[in-house]
């Protein structure tokens, strides 16, 4: 039985992941901003057979609370095996272009806060010589596009941070997983026209759980076909890419 901490636990994708984990009897500590949603999720996970579920509200941008959250999770779970960061915001690109504060806020939530939190987790796990660190980045971080490059830059920052962290912690026996979802139907993408490439958040979340609990991968695309799509997109020479509009 694993002891798991999830930040942004009420996100549609994290929910699917937490459910799959609960159905296998694991214990969870949930952090998110809205108490009512956390409570609803807590009951759901208990009904599905979770070993134990406890929770606490957290705005991940409140960096001064990170230490206390980690300590509480450790106490409630009686240890810690896996930390998953699933929070995120998709800023409006046009607004970011006009408003520096919005750009910084997006970088803060999607990159800085995660790096701050993982800095603490990494040191702890390194000392213990075990554990799994996972964070949801995005295919958007693989290549900057005009339609969402502020978000993309933040996710790219997170991806690079995780890459370096993996390189450092491998020696200590700590696993670091970068999760790169493609297009996922969730509140975050409500305004997008949906097509055949879109996956359900529950499904992607459940696949994520499988990767984290049973897999060995370092970097995963979800669903898997995004690896090939992004490979193709990344192969386009910049001189051509800069003239394209990929939506």
């Amino acid at each position: 039985m694993k002891r798991i901490l999830i930040i942004g636990a009420t996100s549609a994708m994290a929910k699917g992941c937490a459910r799959a984990m609960a159905e296998q009897g694991h214990s969870l500590f949930l952090c998110a901003r809205k108490m009512a949603e956390i409570e609803e999720l807590k009951h759901d996970l208990l009904a599905r057979g979770a070993g134990s579920v406890s929770a606490m509200t957290l705005d991940i941008n409140n960096l001064s609370r990170h230490k206390a959250v980690l300590e509480t999770a450790y106490q409630e779970l009686d240890g810690l095996d896996l930390v998953l960061l699933a929070h995120g915001t998709l800023p409006n690109q046009q607004q970011c272009e006009q408003n520096v504060d919005k750009t910084i806020e997006a970088l803060q939530t999607n990159a800085v806060s995660s790096i701050a939190f993982l800095t603490r987790v990494a040191n702890q796990f390194e000392q213990w010589g075990q554990g799994t660190i996972a964070a949801i980045s995005s295919v958007a971080g693989d290549r900057g596009r005009q339609s969402n490059y502020v978000y993309g830059a933040a996710k790219n920052c997170l991806t690079t941070y995780l890459q370096g962290l993996r390189n450092r912690l491998d020696k200590a026996g700590v696993r670091v997983v970068t999760i790169k979802p493609g297009l996922v139907i969730s509140p975050m993408t409500a305004d997008f026209e949906k097509g055949p490439l879109w996956a359900s958040a529950d499904d992607v979340g459940r696949r994520m759980a499988r990767v984290l609990l049973e897999g060995k991968q370092d970097v995963v695309y979800l669903p898997g076909f995004w690896r090939w799509i992004m490979m193709a997109i990344c192969m386009i020479p910049e001189t051509i890419f800069k003239r394209m509009s990929l939506g």
């Binding site: 549609a12 609803e40 999720l41 009951h43 759901d44 208990l46 009904a47 599905r48 529950d202």
Partner: peptide
């Protein structure tokens, strides 16, 4: 379709609220 949480399930009685 996305409001799909279970609220409680009692394996002793089989009563499920969702």
């Amino acid at each position: 379709g996305s409001l799909d949480s279970l609220i409680s399930f009692d394996p002793a009685t089989g009563r499920l609220v969702a």
